[in-house]
């Protein structure tokens, strides 16, 4: 079956629940209870958003969220914001290290958080200036631009990245 790519105004969305929407295509086809997921949650935020039905089967893919009408964009963005929790680390106040275990005492856009990391494992992943952090419980955090952090935070991170 050919994949349905959604661009511009070829679909209307109605928010059904926190992370769920109903979709009606321009040709009249209707799809219920679709959950938008990012196909590239780490590398791309607004493109290639898959719409999965209750059985996890893909019904369509939004090629680029920005091409959708503003109100439609917001509906999908709201769902994604509920689904994805990747707090942005704004500042690292302090750290505590003991062998492989590292605790970062961080300020995030979602509030203060003590992040426990295993250094030797996949704790940090750097892509250019962006740093993805994964804690011991598989929670994810993001530093969008390491150069924008204050010097203390950069100094602390510099020990491990």
């Amino acid at each position: 079956m050919e994949r349905i790519y959604i661009d511009n105004d070829m679909a209307r969305f109605v928010r059904k629940d926190l992370t769920v929407v109903d979709m009606e295509l321009a040709d009249g086809r209707r799809f219920e209870n679709l959950e938008p997921h990012r196909l590239f949650p780490v590398s791309v935020q607004d493109q290639f958003i898959t719409l999965l039905d209750e059985n996890g089967a893909e019904q369509a893919v939004i090629r680029d969220l920005k091409t959708l009408p503003k109100d439609q964009q917001e509906i999908i963005e709201d769902c994604l914001n509920e689904y994805y929790l990747i707090p942005k680390i704004l500042r690292i106040r302090d750290f505590h290290e003991r062998f492989d275990g590292l605790t970062l005492f961080a300020e995030t856009d979602k509030g203060p958080k003590d992040i426990d990391i295993r250094i030797l494992l996949k704790g940090f992943r750097m892509e250019g200036v962006r740093v993805m952090v994964r804690d011991i419980n598989d929670n994810r955090y993001e530093i969008p631009d390491i150069n924008r952090l204050d010097s203390l935070s950069r100094q602390i991170l510099g020990r491990y990245i």
């Binding site: 992370t19 509920e82 929670n139």
Partner: peptide
């Protein structure tokens, strides 16, 4: 209630 479950999202759950 009929039942309870944990729905896992990404980095959080409900």
């Amino acid at each position: 209630l009929k039942s309870a479950r944990v729905k896992r999202y990404y980095g959080n759950a409900m």
